[in-house]
Design a binder for these strands. Structure first.
Lengths: 232, 232
DNA sequence: ATATGTGAAAAGTTTCACAGCC
DNA sequence: GGCTGTGAAACTTTTCACATAT
C-alpha cells in the first residue's frame, strides 16, 4: 500500500489512478452517487459509439457544473488529458474500479412480495455485475416456487446459502415488522452490505453491516415537497 | 404572504408553525429527506401508543445528532416545548403540512413492467396520501388488463386522464429508451412532479417538471463502494 | 432538572479562476 | 485554442454550546 505522501505527490505523465481502497478518505458521499451517474452516462455514450468526452459534456447531461465532475474524479486520480478530455472506455473502467463493480458480487434477496419479485427481475442489477444467487421468504406457500431462474427458499436456509455462495450483499424487501430481525441475522451470517427497502431504520450502533436505505414513500414525499415549494 | 422580517421575528408563546409555502427559502435538501424519515418514526411511535418524544430520541432511532433534528424543524417553525419535547400528533401533522402530504395527491404510473406492477401495489404510497388513479403502458397485450384495482390504459389516453383526474404527480417506470419522450409528454400534459425510476436523466434545462430520481442500480453501486471502503 | 431553539464555530461541499499540458 | 487538475474563495450544512422556557 502507498503511503500518504506518495499518494498525494504530483507525478508527470499520463493517467494515474490511485489504487482502490487507498483513496483519499475525505470522499464526499455525494461524490459516490454522482460517480455512479457518470458511469451510467459513459456506458450510454459508449453504446452510441463515442470514444471521448469532456467534463462539461458529462456535466450538462446531468445538470451539474463541469468543475464538479473534474473535482469528483480528482478524488481518485487523474483520468483525463488536458486539452483533450477523457477516454470513455478508460474512464468507465476507472469508475467501475472505484465503485468496486469491476468484478461481480453475489447478492441475495429477502422477501418475495410485490417489490421483491420486481427486484429479482430487474435487469439493471445484472448489467452492473450484481448476481442474484438466492431468494428467501418465510411464507410457506411461496417456498419452492420459482422466481426468475431461482427457487424461493425458506429463511431457515439463509445462513447456509450465505456461506456456500460467499454472499456479501443482500437486498431486503420485507415488511417493516420483520426487517430488524432479518437484518440482524444477515449480519451474523456474514453479509457485509444491505440495500434496505423496508420503511424502517435497521441501522444499529456498533454494527459491521453497511446499509443503504431506499424508502419509496419517502421519495414521493420529497417530490411532493419540491412541487409545493417549486424547487426545480 | 408574510414579509421576511415578520417571518424571522421571535414571538413569545406556544407552537408557531410558519405557513407552508412561506418557509425560509434556504431549506437544505437533506433536511427534506430527513423530515420524511422523522414522519415515518413519529407514525410508528404513535402506533405504539406514545404521545410525546424528544429530539434526542428521534435522532437516536435514525442515527443522527439531536441538534440536527431541532435545526431541521426550526426551518419551519417552533413545534416543541422547552423542557418537555414534542407532541407526536402535533408534530406529525406539522411535518405532513410541510411536506404537502396533509392532503391527498392524484398519481399516475407509466410502465406496467416488473417494477411498475410492484409499485402499483405498494401500500406505502396510499398510506401517505398518494392515490393511484391511472396506469399506462404502450404494449398492446397489456392494455385492458387489470393491475390492482385499475385497468391498464394506452399511453394515447394519458393527456385526457391527467386533465380529467387533475393528476399532479407521475411515477415513471419505463425503459431508459422511452423515458425522455414520456417525460416530455407528461410535462406538456400538465403534470408537475415526476418520480423517475428509469436509469437515465430526464431533466431538461428550462423545464417546469420537478424530478426526483431513483436508480436502483446506482443504489447498489453506492452500497458496493461503501462496503469496499468500510464506510459504515 | 430537562429539553428546545438558535447564534456562532466547525466541517464539508461547490464553484471560481487559472496554471499547466495537449 | 481547448480542457484538465487544483488552490483558494464562496457557500452550505452540521455540530457545539448555552440562553431560554417549562
Amino acid at each position: 500500500m502507498m503511503s500518504d505522501s506518495e499518494r498525494s505527490k504530483k507525478l508527470p505523465g499520463g493517467t494515474r489512478p490511485i489504487p482502490p481502497g487507498t483513496a483519499n478518505p475525505n470522499v464526499p458521499v455525494a461524490t459516490v452517487t454522482r460517480l455512479a451517474l457518470y458511469l451510467r452516462e459513459l456506458q450510454q455514450l459508449h453504446r452510441s459509439g463515442l470514444q471521448r468526452i469532456q467534463s462539461g459534456a458529462i456535466a450538462k447531461r446531468l445538470g451539474l457544473n463541469d468543475s464538479q465532475v473534474r473535482r469528483d474524479l480528482s478524488c481518485f486520480g487523474q483520468f483525463g488529458q488536458r486539452g483533450v478530455g477523457y477516454s470513455i472506455p478508460a474512464l468507465t473502467q476507472a469508475i467501475q474500479a472505484i465503485l468496486g463493480t469491476d468484478r461481480s458480487w453475489n447478492v441475495i434477496l429477502i422477501g418475495a412480495g410485490n417489490l421483491g419479485r420486481a427486484l429479482s427481475g430487474y435487469r439493471g442489477f445484472d448489467q452492473q455485475g450484481f448476481r442474484l444467487v438466492g431468494v428467501f421468504d418465510c411464507v410457506e406457500d411461496k417456498i419452492g416456487s420459482k422466481l426468475g431462474g431461482l427457487t424461493i427458499q425458506s429463511l431457515d436456509d439463509l445462513e447456509a446459502v450465505v456461506e456456500k455462495e460467499s454472499v456479501e450483499l443482500a437486498i431486503l424487501a420485507v415488511p417493516a415488522s420483520s426487517a430488524a430481525s432479518v437484518a440482524q441475522r444477515l449480519e451474523i451470517a456474514g453479509v457485509t452490505g444491505l440495500l434496505n427497502f423496508a420503511p424502517v431504520s435497521v441501522r444499529k450502533p456498533g454494527s459491521s453491516l453497511t446499509v443503504v436505505d431506499v424508502d419509496l414513500a419517502v421519495e414521493l414525499q420529497r417530490l411532493a415537497f419540491a412541487v409545493v415549494n417549486q424547487k426545480n
